[in-house]
Design a binder for these strands. Sequence first.
DNA 1: TAATAAAATAAACACTGTTTAGTATATGGG
DNA 2: CCCATATACTAAACAGTGTTTATTTTATTA
Lengths: 203, 203
Amino acid sequence: MGSAERKERDKQEMREMILTAAKNLFIREGFEHVTIRRIAEVIEYSPATVYLYFTDKDAILCALQELGFRELYKRQQVLSVIKDPAERLRACGKIYMEFAMENQEWYDLMFIMRAPMKAFDTPEDWNLGRDTYEVLRSIIVECIDQGYLKARDPQIACFALWSLMHGVVSIFIRDRAPMIPKEHRNHVIDGILDFTMAELLEK
Amino acid sequence: MGSAERKERDKQEMREMILTAAKNLFIREGFEHVTIRRIAEVIEYSPATVYLYFTDKDAILCALQELGFRELYKRQQVLSVIKDPAERLRACGKIYMEFAMENQEWYDLMFIMRAPMKAFDTPEDWNLGRDTYEVLRSIIVECIDQGYLKARDPQIACFALWSLMHGVVSIFIRDRAPMIPKEHRNHVIDGILDFTMAELLEK
DNA sequence: TAATAAAATAAACACTGTTTAGTATATGGG
DNA sequence: CCCATATACTAAACAGTGTTTATTTTATTA
């Protein structure tokens, strides 16, 4: 009697329901309104019920994080049509920082906040981050192969470039750039990209 | 009758007392243990009393932040003995990242956390950050003047370098570098410095 | 000394995330 | 069909948080 399968299906549906509620609260009202009680309210169950489907709030935030990464992946897909690796490298940076500035709370959840990382047993389990990193790494390796970049250590070059991009957007997102007016931010991002490409690539 | 002056002195002493308690809790037990109730406990007053001397918790965290900046300033002082601006630029980066890795919670409070910034009416009031930025900016200007650096826009070069350093340490501090084992971090930081100096400076 | 002004606090408020113990509901066997 | 069992759900509490209010204690001044 395949009622066990239906049970499993129902359980998955409920998990989906909770996640959708959390996602909508996140999108419509922002991170700080994503509370267990508000989620419970939306799905019309008691707060305690949420804990029958997720071990804790961090697990929910972790699942939300995944949605953010899916959006970033989607945006990164256009990179494959760019043949020149140097051009692709620039576009990669542009896409990354554009995503961050247009989806600041998602980016925060993905790359800054502590909470969602606590859902992993060990930081090594964070494959979403590693996959994003791999996109950049493969481009850089190609840049080196084609002689655009003479970096001795691709690992260092890759981490440096990611750090640069993350640094820029996280300084903006957490309001640590009083010397740069808000309306100049996009211009600065382009300036940083120009600067980096000019300094980095072989002339 | 100069009792008004004594009143003011007493008030300042109490503020100092609260701040010292907060600082010690921060150092000895970490950020998450810095709560109004714990502070009140330490100074042997009621939690409500704290609010007679600080408008809210963010104001206390903001004052704590200042202590962090003072330590960073102190470390930056050794830069003045380095005559060569290129060498000074490297040392500046090294000091910054070393401070961050050795005082991760202080760095977090200074450059990552939202809370202490809420104490400012506007982000422009964050002079502590601007001052630190100025140290780097003056070095870069000197590097350009002496022909070490051919950056068109010093503002962009400066923000890029700060972003790079902040990016590196904040990725580590917020556990977003699963691809780099903890024991390799210091080596990576040196690698990033080498890489940056090599790519940036005129050969 | 009594009236006034200042300082300190007890207790509550409005929230968190989370757990426990008890209640409904659905399932499967006789 | 009924009843025991297992599952699903929840009310209420727990242990925290930052913060405010109304009250009491303390100090000052006339």
